[in-house]
Design a protein around this nucleic acid. Structure first.
Length: 644
RNA sequence: GCCGAAGUAGCUCAGCUGGUAGAGCAGCUGAUUUGUAAUCAGCAGGUCGGGGGUUCGAGCCCCUUCUUCGGCUCCA
């Protein structure tokens, strides 16, 4: 007998070799029908894998993230079976589960798969699913594996096989399809009740753009049709929050082919949001001891040769502009840091001067590949709320922590609670991509890790995500469709100060090298606004929204009173407008609701007589009548609450 | 840049096997004077992304180019 510890701490005895499915059945038949896989001693395994030793044990169903993964991975195999049915000779690379669904990278040879083929593939998948075919696991030797896939003629699987250790190789078979796979899989195909192929894309083999491009098919599946319907509905809802759609509807920004792709044009209302964010940040930075500076939009090529940007990005960025007579080369500014280094050098520094913190809303231009552009989140010209802190080595941690505080302050004021802090380190396998000594990198990485820990941030480490001159602490948030974006970033840099030969005089009267911290709490204003739009679904916080109040006269007899109300509110610094159109009140309310204006003030005979306003709040409705002063006070209080 | 999809009025979209370009909203003009999510009528609005081609005839078919969308790769 073996002891099985259930999630609630209960220990039960089962015969040796019992399976997760046996345990599930011993608890309830209903549960057993929903079991997809199980976690045994922390490892996710097939539900019908015999358990030989004492173990902690959790059953996994579609309600568990890992249960979903099992389901989706098995669905990828099911799709592969359907593909093989329609396109014999199709070759398979990998088919992993994702956060939402799965994909499989395949090579269809000369056949060009299109989304028109999805329907018949989905139908075949469901037909195969209904056969309730079990997923059968089989351990094989490497030689047998090589033999099998050589006969099948699948060079991609052979490539995978080459990198596997003998004795640790398994095949999974369901119906007529056998795949090299470590598993685990769901018990049988019948658990898959609803499937949807969602997208088709090219994907380079092994993610290398020099390699052949495979066809990647994305899909998702569910244990009930209803779950799929709900998922599709959720996707529809998410699309409504898309900043590109809202940006158009709320007249925030636009693009023009004539101006050029990836070059956003900020409309008046979008500009109002953006400038208010800027003011907010300027104020916070002054309080934190930053010194605003301004630098030009172009810089001499030599500047970027010194910084290393030229070597790293010179060929892949906008090409230099030349002076007509001297032929001197200037680049559009892709970064503010080299300019700020030169500002630092403008005067000799003493250890007593440090830290100095230069801040600039610097607009930078970067060539992004055409296929990369995406609304406001990925553009070719954008403005960073950039600053560079130059400090003594003993000040690095304190300064870094203060910057983290600033980022968190910003996130709080804008209601961003769902973020993760990514510690982006150097790729240890590929150090040639970076500049600077191992020692400097170690110091910088250590400073970031220590500061993040000190601030109690929820972090995870990504290797290879560092900037070429230093490691980063990146604050990542998700957009409406679940795509991750980097907003705030803080970077420790020992390298640029050396390249620019920055110095300060220490208390020992010797020259020392300062450490540089790059930081941008918003990151790029463009991207920040985009994510903010999706985050609040276009309903900006009251302090930030371009138009706070619409005064809606019942008929044009009350336009003058409405204008008086508006004027009074404007005197209180409240952004109010009058809807003077010759429309019925219902129409004015509808239009104002659609514009997502936070407050509507309906004014007619009663209000004019009482010197009052009838308050209606966006998406909430009638809030009753009050005096103009009382309403102004209400607004002030709500704003104070948001910025507290 | 690569793979796949798409581009029709300011916006959202319809337009059959190739046969005279449509609707709603927005806009303009007029009527209406309105009490909490659409008052009515009229008018105007288009090189069907651009360029080539096939055809008696192209929004529709073919080629090319630009842009956008979904991914890949990249992201100082």
């Amino acid at each position: 007998m073996i002891n099985i510890t259930l999630p609630d701490g209960q220990v039960k005895q089962y015969p040796k070799g019992t399976t997760a499915m046996d345990i599930a059945k011993s608890i309830s038949e209903g549960l057993a029908r929903n079991v997809l896989s199980a976690k045994v001693n922390g490892e996710v395994v097939d539900a019908n894998l015999p358990i030989e030793t004492d173990a902690t044990f959790t059953l996994l169903t579609f309600n568990d993230a890992q249960g979903k993964e099992t389901m989706w991975h098995s669905t990828a195999h099911l799709m592969a079976e359907a593909l093989e049915f329609y396109y014999p000779g199709v070759k398979f690379w990998v088919g992993p589960p994702l956060e939402n669904g799965f994909y499989y990278d395949v090579d269809c040879g000369t056949y060009v798969l299109s989304t028109d083929d999805f329907k018949k593939i989905e139908d075949k998948m469901l037909e195969l699913a209904r056969q309730n075919n079990p997923y059968l696991r089989k351990a094989i030797s490497k030689t047998d594996g090589i033999k099998y896939f050589t006969e099948k003629g699948d060079e991609y699987k052979l490539d995978l096989l080459q990198n596997l250790e003998d004795g640790n190789i398994t095949l999974y078979t369901q119906g007529n399809f056998t795949d090299l796979c470590r598993g685990p899989h769901i018990p049988h195909t019948g658990l898959i009740k609803a499937v949807k192929l969602t997208a088709l894309a090219g994907a380079y083999w092994k993610g290398d753009e020099k390699n052949k491009q495979l066809t990647r098919i994305y899909g998702i599946s569910f244990p009930k049709q209803k779950d799929l319907d709900e998922y599709l509905k959720m996707l529809e809802e998410a699309k409504k929050r898309d900043h590109r759609k809202l940006g158009k509807e709320l007249e925030l920004f636009t693009f023009s082919e004539k101006v050029g792709m990836g070059l956003p044009l900020w409309l008046p209302k979008g500009t109002a949001v953006r400038e208010r964010l800027e003011q907010f940040m300027r104020k916070a930075q002054v309080q934190a001891g930053y010194l605003p500076v301004v630098t030009p939009h172009i810089g001499n090529k030599n500047l970027y040769i010194t910084s290393g940007h030229y070597e790293k990005y010179g060929k892949d960025s906008f090409q230099p502009i030349k002076t007509p007579h001297e032929g001197e080369e200037f680049f559009l500014k892709p970064m503010n840091c080299p300019h700020h280094c030169e500002i630092y050098k403008a005067s000799p520094k003493s250890y007593k001067d440090l830290p100095v913190r230069y801040a600039e809303f610097g607009t930078v231009y970067r060539y992004e590949m055409a296929g990369e552009l995406h609304g406001l989140t990925r553009v070719r010209g954008f403005t960073q709320d950039d600053a560079h802190l130059f400090c003594r080595p003993d000040q690095v941690k304190e300064e870094f922590c203060k910057v983290i505080d600033l980022v968190l302050y910003v996130f709080k004021a804008l209601n961003f609670t769902d973020y993760v802090a990514q510690i982006s380190l150097r790729d240890p396998e590929n150090k040639a991509k970076y500049i600077g000594s191992d020692e400097n990198w170690q110091l910088a990485e250590q400073a970031i890790i220590e500061s993040a820990n000190e601030k109690g941030l929820k972090t995870f480490v990504e290797l290879g995500e560092a900037a070429f001159y230093g490691p980063k602490l990146d604050f990542m948030v998700k957009d409406a469709l679940g795509r991750k974006w980097q907003l705030g970033t803080i970077q420790v840099d020992y390298n640029l100060p050396a390249r620019f030969e920055l110095e300060y005089t220490g208390s020992d009267n010797q020259k020392h090298r300062p450490v540089m911290i790059h930081r941008a709490p918003f990151g790029s204003l463009e991207r920040f606004v985009a994510v903010l739009i999706e985050h609040c679904a276009g309903n900006f916080p009251l302090w930030l929204t371009p138009e706070q109040v619409y005064v809606l006269p019942i008929s044009d007899k009350y336009n003058d009173y409405a204008k008086k109300v508006c004027q009074l509110l404007n005197n209180y610094d409240i952004r109010a407008l009058v809807d003077e159109r010759n429309e019925k009140i219902g129409k004015k309310i509808r239009d104002t609701e659609l514009k997502k204006i936070p407050f509507m003030l309906v004014v007619g005979e009663k209000e004019m007589t009482d010197n009052a306003v009838a308050v209606r709040k966006h998406s909430e409705g009638d809030k009753g009548t009050m005096t103009i002063e009382a309403f102004a006070e209400l607004i002030k209080q709500e704003i104070n609450g948001q910025l507290a």
